[in-house]
Write a protein that binds this DNA or RNA. Structure first.
Lengths: 356, 356
DNA sequence: TCTCGGCATGTTCACGGTCACACATGCCGG
DNA sequence: CCGGCATGTGTGACCGTGAACATGCCGAGA
């Protein structure tokens, strides 16, 4: 110390490299803390990990030094030695939609509360390559758990192929993998929607389904067909859409050229909106001429014209339970939440009695 | 080494625990690969890092062993030694909305392509504590870059207070921090929307603004006021909303009790939707009685009744540029994308000439 | 009084990579 | 013929943390 001070003053001793910016100051480590607190690094580590047998005054001294140095534990080092990343991966499709986005937000919040980080990978298309890419990306990160909100059938195949080695939860019921599933009972929801239309007197009901390879879409379709069958109402083949309002609009227009129906059950609210658009464009009124039911209850649905009768899914709850489920595997505590969540029919103004 | 081998063979020396399931097989490391390939661990590392001077056959041998062992590099170890996490953090508010969600998805895609991971933290309320929490959460993770999609004014204060030590980009123009900003020019967008109404003959125009503490909301409001001023149209005080359709509905209802306006410029499409709902509930027609312009161009806007005239923001592009900007700081390559993106007026059917 | 056990703390090593440096080989020019 | 340089590879240290084990001290029980 004395030397250095001297060196700075004495003009003769030229410091070769006055450390003007010494390759960026490295962050303080537990050893730095230890040195200043006059303890061993292990004691610092013990403070960090709430080890019981530390004298309160020692602990306090360490904590003080930590604060002074603005010490931040190094996650990489910790992950390396414990081989735990404390990171949950989310594989998500269509994360711009309200439902998935809500669940993701809830998952993040719940995970954070439990001291976990969340990392996402969005897949755009549903081809196997894209799915595998996303999965590989997450896996390379060393995630400890995986949430799949990309509910295409193919995802499950890929999941199996890649023999995912971490606990995972999927937000959709596949039927074939109940162990890892936490789902809103899409079938029950679809039945409620369909039943509502039937009870109001409709017999000619079309179903605007989601993409074939989506498990949810399939489940809602099944629910529709089941309920129709249970009530002995003849059905026509569902129309396979792509979840967008745009598709709903075109499908609606197509359907209206024949107009052999009094009601439409759309597989999500966006498609329902598109259909409503087409119906009005045709000079018809909802629900006088055509009744419509949607699915999801996005926040906007209450302000469609007319306000849309739909099936509400509690997306945040799904996200929360999902994390609980995962953490149950990971930390073997936390309550058991496995099982399904019952969606709820929200009756608004888009359904009336059939016109004829 | 000799000793150990001997011990395993000599029946007298009883191995206390025949490792039937040796506490879960640990993942293969570069040393395992090295041993099987008959090279040093350093050579394996060189293969991993595309070091130029390796004999092709050596490289191939290493690669073969890697494949055989299903070797996966350990991210934590690499991060520890290089002190690079290759992780970008996203601090986001209202991530369930279409705009932020789109940007997040684009950011994730762009980051992934560049070999970065993305981790998100959502903040619900805009209180300083919540913001600081989210930021701390990300920081504890050792993020290398930060994207802020939580455009409340307070976030910037917190950002400054916590003296964030990583490069960051905010998706909104603050005016005061152009260095770190990449933004859609909200003011220009709002002016376009307002000008459109004025050109169609409207003189009594209300503005339904977003929450006061949102920078975007403020900018759109400023754009509205600027354009009104530039055209010498007298203005009334904007109404401060919360982005929701629900609020738009109530505000619209309130406004219609007086009905001293011919047009409304809503600060986003959801609020516009709510207003439309209120207008129709009052027995009026759009655009005959009231003209409405929104902002964002969410995919549903084209199917509102009537299809909504609005201002389109290219969210994905924002996300992409954002990553480019960040990676420019990080990797000092990649083109410079700093600057603003001009939003675009999408004219549909919700604006007409004023009724009187 | 001696031993034993628990507390508070220190020492050493391991985790799985990368980096700096050393070393062997072969080619080329003086 | 020898030194220097490029190429290909190995050795050992190091990153920051936590676990196993060691140590010193103190009080309780034999």
């Amino acid at each position: 110390m004395c030397d250095r001070e001297h060196a700075e003053i004495d003009p003769e001793v030229t410091v070769p490299e006055p450390p003007q910016e010494p390759t960026r100051v490295r962050a303080p480590s537990i050893r730095d803390v230890a040195r200043l607190a006059g303890v061993s690094h292990q004691t610092v580590s013990r403070v960090l990990n709430q080890h019981p047998s530390i004298r309160p005054e020692t602990k306090q001294r360490v904590l003080d030094v930590m604060a002074e140095l603005q010490y931040k534990p190094n996650r990489a080092a910790r992950a390396l030695v414990t081989s735990r990343s404390r990171t949950i991966g989310i594989l998500s499709a269509s994360s711009t939609h309200y439902g998935p986005a809500s669940s993701i937000a809830a998952i993040e919040a719940a995970a954070r509360e439990s001291g976990y980080w969340v990392s996402t990978a969005n897949i755009e298309s549903s081809d196997a390559g894209s799915i595998a890419d996303g999965l590989a990306h997450l896996r390379a990160q060393g995630i400890e758990g995986l949430v799949v909100i990309a509910p295409q059938v193919r995802v499950f195949d890929t999941l199996a192929e890649l023999s995912i080695d971490v606990p995972y939860v999927t937000l959709q019921s596949t039927g074939r993998d109940p162990e890892h599933t936490l789902s809103v009972d899409q079938i029950a929801g679809a039945r409620k929607a369909t039943r509502h239309l039937i009870h109001r007197g409709h017999r000619m009901i079309y179903h605007l389904a989601g993409p074939q390879d989506w498990i949810e879409a399939e489940a809602r379709m099944r629910g529709f067909l089941d309920e129709m069958g249970a009530n002995d109402v003849p059905t026509t083949a569902p129309i396979l859409g792509d979840w967008t309002a745009e598709f709903g609009f075109h499908a609606g227009r197509e359907l209206l050229t024949v107009r052999d129906f009094t009601a439409i059950f759309a597989s999500n609210d966006q498609m329902a909106l598109g259909v409503m658009h087409a119906v009005r464009d045709a000079g018809l009124e909802i629900p006088r001429d055509v009744s419509i039911v949607g699915f999801d209850d996005i926040p906007e649905a209450a302000h469609f014209w007319p306000p849309l009768t739909t099936v509400r899914q509690d997306f945040p709850e799904v996200g929360r339970r999902c994390v609980a489920l995962l953490l149950g595997d990971l930390d073997s505590s936390a309550p058991e939440y496995r099982g399904t969540i019952e969606p709820e029919l929200i009756v608004r103004d888009s359904v009336g009695a059939p016109a004829f």
